[in-house]
Simulated scan of single mutants.
Amino acid sequence: MIIAIVNQHSSPDRTVVARNLAVLRARSGRRVCLMTTGGTSESDWCNERSNAGVRPWIDTRQVGSRAVRTRLAALRPLFNDILIDAGTRDTDGCRCVLAASRLVVVPVRGGALDLDLQYRLLARLNGARAFNPGMRVLFVAVSGPAGPDASERAAVLAHVARVRDATLAETVLHAPAAFDYGPGRCVLDAATCDPDAAAEMRTLYDEVYATVPKMVFAVEAQMGAAHALWR
C-alpha cells in the first residue's frame, strides 16, 4: 500500500510523521520502503539508522521527477508498504504520487497556516481525485504542548471541510519535531524518548491504518504470495 505524507509549508512535521509511521510499520513485520520526492534527507536518515545499528532497518528510495508511475509499479511487488514524503511543492512527481496513493496524510498546524500555500495544497488534493477517486485524505492537527486552542481547531476543521471526503484524525500531535533523538533515530526508538510523544505516534499509526479496509491487506498478501512463487 502507498501512503503519501504532504503539508503546506516547510515545517519538519511531515518528515517526522513519515519516519515514525515507517518505523512502526516495519516493527509489525511488514516490508517497508520510505521514499521522498526531493532531496536526500530520508536517504541520509536511513543510512544513519543502518550505520548506528538501529532496528528495524528501513529501506529507502528516491522517487525522482520522471517515470514516477513506472518506478512505483516496479517497487510495489518488493514491499508491503511504501510511505512517501511528498514534500510541499506542486511538482509532477508529487502529483503522480498522489494519483497512486491509497491514503494521504496531511499534518497541519492551525496556528501557522499560510492561506495561499494551503489553498494550493487543497486544490492539489481535490485535483488528484480525478485520477484517483479512491484516495483517502486524513488531516492531523499539530500543536504546541498546550494546544490546540479553539481558534486552531477551527482553522484546521475549515481546511478539512474544503477537501472532499477528507477526515480529521482524533490524534493530536504536540510538538513532534521539538527534539533531536540522535542520528537515524526517532521518538519511537530513542533510548530516552518522550513517552507522551511516542504514545501519540502509536495512536496516530492505529488511526492511519484503520482507515484502510482489511480487504486491501488480504489482496496484498495474495499478490505477495504470487510474486514469491515466481521469484
Score class of each variant (00 low, 15 high):
I2W: 03
I2M: 09
I2E: 06
V6T: 01
Q8I: 03
Q8R: 09
Q8G: 05
S10I: 11
S11G: 08
D13T: 14
D13H: 12
V17F: 02
N20I: 06
A22V: 11
A22S: 14
V23N: 12
V23E: 13
V23S: 12
L24P: 02
R25P: 01
A26W: 01
R31F: 12
V32G: 06
C33A: 05
M35A: 08
T37M: 00
G38H: 07
G38E: 09
G39I: 03
T40K: 07
S41M: 07
E42Q: 13
D44R: 02
W45K: 01
W45A: 03
C46I: 01
N47H: 05
E48H: 06
R49G: 01
N51R: 13
P56Q: 07
W57S: 14
W57Q: 12
I58K: 06
Q62F: 10
S65Q: 14
S65M: 13
A73T: 10
A74I: 05
A74T: 04
R76A: 01
L78S: 02
L78F: 03
N80P: 04
D81M: 14
D81T: 14
A86N: 06
A86Q: 07
G87F: 03
T88K: 05
R89K: 05
D92M: 13
D92N: 12
C94A: 15
A99R: 07
S101P: 08
L103M: 12
L103A: 07
L103D: 06
V106Q: 03
P107Q: 08
V108M: 15
R109P: 03
A112K: 14
A112H: 15
L113V: 14
L113C: 11
D114K: 10
L115C: 15
D116Q: 14
L117D: 11
L117Q: 13
R120T: 03
L121W: 08
L122E: 13
A123W: 15
L125R: 15
R129C: 12
A130L: 14
R136F: 04
L138Q: 01
V142Q: 10
G147V: 09
D149G: 13
A150M: 08
S151H: 11
R153G: 07
L157I: 11
H159R: 10
H159F: 11
R162L: 14
R162Q: 15
D165T: 14
D165L: 15
T167K: 05
T167S: 06
L168I: 02
E170Y: 00
V172S: 05
V172M: 10
V172I: 14
A178L: 13
F179G: 08
Y181V: 06
G182P: 08
V187L: 10
L188F: 08
L188T: 12
D189A: 09
D189C: 11
C193W: 04
C193K: 04
D194I: 04
P195L: 04
A197T: 07
A198E: 08
A199Y: 02
A199G: 03
M201A: 07
D206K: 04
Y209W: 00
K214G: 15
K214N: 13
F217C: 02
V219A: 09
E220H: 02
A221S: 12
M223H: 15
G224E: 10
H227V: 15
